[in-house]
């Protein structure tokens, strides 16, 4: 078993080329497995020194976040003011130690149903840029994450960037866990109110095999925030109750060691309603 630390993306993709090596980003999943008695047998390509995929750039109305950008970077400016829901999700990941190590590409490639960024990225219709030595694929989140901890990525492919649209309007990520810090999501809800597209989207974390969107709730929310001719309106308490019910129906929670179906479904409704009330108030006051 060998560890290589390529200095460029080209070298990294070449090293992954024959499909026999494992990429190593923050190590927050892979090293836990090693420490708990699953020694590495395959060669490892460390992404620690591939600077091209460790930064992020704001380009017009898209933030291009490198696949190996850490949560510490994503929780700060410019993401905090351009994609606040994603910065909020980043801030809820683990602890400073974990946020200094863990990466957005790792979150996507691990494809845990509890991945904090995944609901946000789904709600924002983010695009994942996947590359191998010979090709580039631009993929939507549901095309990358196809099951719990299952992706459609090939062994020679690497997540080199995530393209996240900057949306005018209101957005937030809220998470329920057993404590404030260092916690894996029991439930996560991302809500995006897009004033330009006049649309509302919900991305749910930890209540389904993959990050979920809620098409019925999104249609109802759109009708609650705008009249048919596109004039903004303020959703009523009744609207918000109805939309939250639809978000709950869109969740597909399971009972597991972290929570129950009932608690998760209930929490999704609470968080969605809270988001909608805050969004309505914030947009009205603008």
């Amino acid at each position: 078993m060998l560890v290589s630390s390529p200095r460029s993306l080209e070298e990294a993709l070449a090293a992954l080329g024959d499909g026999s090596c494992r990429p190593l980003a923050g190590g927050t999943d892979l090293m836990v497995a090693v420490n708990h008695g699953h020694p590495m047998t395959s060669d490892v390509v460390s992404l620690d020194r591939v600077d091209e995929i460790r930064g992020l750039t704001l380009d017009g109305d898209v933030v291009r976040i490198g696949g190996a950008a850490t949560w510490t970077l994503i929780a700060d400016e410019p993401v905090r003011s351009t994609v606040p829901a994603l910065a909020q999700a980043a801030r809820t990941v683990g602890s400073p130690q974990i946020r200094n190590a863990g990466t957005i590409g790792g979150n996507i490639a691990t494809a845990s149903p509890a991945g904090d960024s995944l609901g946000v990225l789904a709600a924002l219709d983010a695009t994942v840029e996947v590359r191998s030595a010979s090709r580039t694929r631009l993929m939507a989140i549901p095309d990358v994450i196809i099951g719990p901890k299952v992706t459609s990525l090939e062994a020679d492919e690497l997540i080199v960037a995530v393209h996240v649209p900057v949306v005018r309007g209101w957005q937030s990520y809220a998470k329920v866990g057993v404590r404030n810090a260092m916690v894996i999501a029991t439930v996560g809800v991302a809500t995006v109110v897009n004033e330009e597209a006049r649309s509302v989207s919900f991305g749910l974390t930890s209540v389904g095999p993959t990050p979920l969107r809620c098409p019925d709730a999104e249609v109802a929310a759109c009708e609650a925030f705008w009249t048919l001719d596109g004039t903004p309106r303020t959703p009523t308490a009744r609207d918000i109750g109805h939309i939250a019910e639809l978000v709950m129906e869109g969740a597909q929670p399971i009972d597991d060691h972290r929570s129950s179906v009932e608690y998760r479904r209930h929490s999704v409704g609470v968080l969605a309603a809270r988001h909608l009330r805050t969004a309505a108030r914030t947009l009205r006051e603008q």
Binding site: S5, G26, G27, T28, N35, S46, A101
Partner: peptide, 10 residues
Amino acid sequence: MCSCLVMAAA
């Protein structure tokens, strides 16, 4: 960093 999550050879 948590040194348990850092691969030493990297």
